[in-house]
């Protein structure tokens, strides 16, 4: 199957600590891949290497066959890699609506317009409101992002990602910190993107039921190394995985 993003011997070390160690994976286009592993396994670092927040010490990243290892975050976003962050990373002192509108502005390449008033772009506002509606945040559209609860900020993260409309979505624990009632709505948003079938999603998640329910493929990281890669059944049956991660944690 054609891959959208591929890594070759991806390695990064901070001082003496190797956070990601020679990870070579291939993520098939338009499928749903989850990355699992215990805390400290290097999942978020792996994401940072894919999205360009970090540069690898060794190894390469290919996006749609192109070597993007040296490309910056900005360039990767423009190529179609969007991500949400595990630690909420929004613009605190502007409104929720403006947060989302900025993402739409970027997607629509309205970058240097300094003469027109922002209200000229009515469509952006309308679309931003629609997206906020999707993630159940429309009631808070005019609140400052700083005043949102943790769960609401997570929703805003997802809204901003949706607004960018990337080909490849990197979701870093999108439901972490959300109340139990809030999770289904976000799950539905993710399921809907998956159903559309024209997006590739890579998800980092600890909730195994969610991972097993959504994933076409699972990647298991352990101590920065690739432990296993396969479909959910294969991963569940994999003894190494069971002892190293799933079994180890449930005991």
């Amino acid at each position: 199957m054609e891959s959208i993003i591929e890594t070759k011997d991806l390695t990064i070390s901070f001082g003496g600590h190797i956070a990601v160690n020679q990870v070579s994976v291939s993520i098939p286009r338009n499928l749903f891949t989850s990355v699992i592993g215990p805390n400290g396994a290097g999942k978020t670092t792996f994401f940072n290497l894919l999205s360009g927040q970090l540069n690898p010490t060794v190894g390469k990243v290919f996006f749609k066959g192109e070597n993007i290892t040296k490309k910056s975050t900005v360039e990767r976003t423009r190529l179609g890699i969007g991500r949400s962050f595990q630690i909420t990373n929004v613009f605190p002192n502007i409104t929720v609506l403006e947060n989302v509108r900025l993402a739409i502005q970027s997607r629509e390449k309205v970058r240097f317009q300094m003469i027109r008033h922002f209200t000229y772009y009515k469509k952006f506002t309308e679309e931003a409101l629609n997206i906020l509606n999707t993630v159940l945040l429309s009631k808070r559209a005019n609140a400052l992002a700083a005043n949102l609860s943790h769960g609401e900020k997570r929703k805003l993260e997802i809204a901003m990602l949706l607004a960018l409309d990337p080909e490849l979505l990197l979701l870093d624990e999108p439901t972490a910190g959300m109340s139990l009632e809030e999770v289904p709505a976000i799950l539905e948003v993710i399921e809907n993107i998956k159903k559309e079938g024209n997006r590739t999603i890579i998800l980092i998640e600890h909730k195994m039921d969610m991972v097993l329910g959504l994933s076409d493929q699972i990647i298991v990281l352990y101590n920065g190394e690739l432990l296993a890669q396969g479909n959910p059944e294969e991963i569940m049956d994999n003894e190494t995985v069971q002892t190293a991660y799933i079994g180890g944690e449930s005991k």
Binding site: Q53, S72, T73, V74, T77, N89, F91, L102, S106, M160
Partner: peptide, 8 residues
């Protein structure tokens, strides 16, 4: 940092 990851 977030501005960059939005593609600006």
């Amino acid at each position: 940092g977030r501005v960059e990851s939005l593609g600006f």
